[in-house]
């Protein structure tokens, strides 16, 4: 596995006249899982879209192995850099196997036929995501978690060394969120795929990231190991929230507990008074 280097330098970008990113720098560690977190409207989605050339930067550039991605031929780029957008569309009635095979798009052309390599890529994507049993089912009949696994399978069939994902766990139940993040970790471990994703949940981000990046107001506020990044100071600066950060006993990673105005126990051993409903249950 070759380790491609994805670097953003002095990146400014936005929509129309509104600049959302203001001179952002980031080097994506090859072969690792990088997770981007931040408050709503801090530019994390815009950043991921600029990294994957969906948006052209107004200043600065995104370099893949030293070459600007906005000057690389689209199809060449799509063989190295994959993206799972936030809301891809599954054509009505399409089956899982059909959808996953569409990940082979950048490896084919108008006149090239299917090769053994294409079939192998689809097969291994279906197996890796445990969607093989679903192959003949229409995508619109699947549960949210299954559907997200299918989309990841499609991105895998594209066989890119770098995979960007925009909030891959949104709208999923917590068990499916864990399933998707475990799956992405498997891919990173077994294939060496560089994963870059935006996540909403700070604690899941800290648990699954090798490299955690906290954005605030269109800039990188702090980046590094989850232990170094997820601190009470960071949460205060990025989210404007008071919190306590402790160590998660199961993963050993930092975990953030928000402090609000209500429901604060005077001390940790004072149990909450159970409601009458719970007593009856």
């Amino acid at each position: 596995m070759t380790d491609h280097l994805l670097v953003a330098t002095g990146l400014s970008a936005g929509y129309d006249d509104t600049e959302i990113l203001h001179g952002l720098d980031l080097t994506v560690p090859p072969g690792r899982i990088t997770v981007i977190v931040g408050a709503n409207a801090c530019g994390k989605s815009t950043f991921l879209r600029t990294l994957s050339r969906l948006i052209s930067p107004s200043k600065g550039q995104v370099l893949l192995d030293g070459k600007s991605i906005h000057r690389t031929p689209s199809r060449d780029l799509a063989r190295t850099l994959g993206l799972l957008p936030q809301s891809p569309i599954a054509p009505e009635g399409i089956t899982v196997a059909d959808l996953v095979s569409r990940g082979r798009h950048p490896h084919q052309s108008l006149f090239s036929r299917w090769t053994r390599q294409d079939d192998e890529a689809v097969d291994s994507a279906l197996s890796a995501t445990k969607t093989f049993e679903l192959a003949e089912r229409p995508v619109d009949e699947l549960s949210g978690g299954q559907r997200q696994r299918v989309w990841i399978a499609m991105a895998l069939a594209q066989q890119t060394d770098i995979l960007l994902l925009d909030e891959p766990t949104t709208f999923l139940d917590i068990n499916h969120q864990i399933e998707v993040l475990d799956l992405l970790t498997d891919l990173n471990r077994t294939r060496g795929t560089t994963v870059v994703m935006v996540l909403h949940d700070l604690n899941l981000a800290a648990r699954y990231a090798d490299h955690l990046v906290a954005l605030a107001e269109g800039r990188v506020h702090v980046s590094g190991t989850p232990e170094a990044v997820l601190t009470e100071d960071t949460v205060r600066h990025v989210f404007g929230l008071e919190s306590r950060v402790i160590t998660d006993p199961t993963s050993g990673r930092p975990i953030m507990l928000p402090i609000g105005r209500h429901r604060m126990a005077a001390s940790t051993d004072t149990a909450r008074e159970p409601s009458s409903k719970e007593k009856n249950a």
Partner: peptide, 22 residues
């Protein structure tokens, strides 16, 4: 000559771009 790219567009503009369609 654009039929493959049209097929990619059915998955959404972002997905089509990610698959290498201009």
């Amino acid at each position: 000559s654009r039929s493959r790219d049209l097929e990619a567009l059915r998955l959404g503009d972002d997905m089509a771009a990610a698959l290498g369609t201009r």
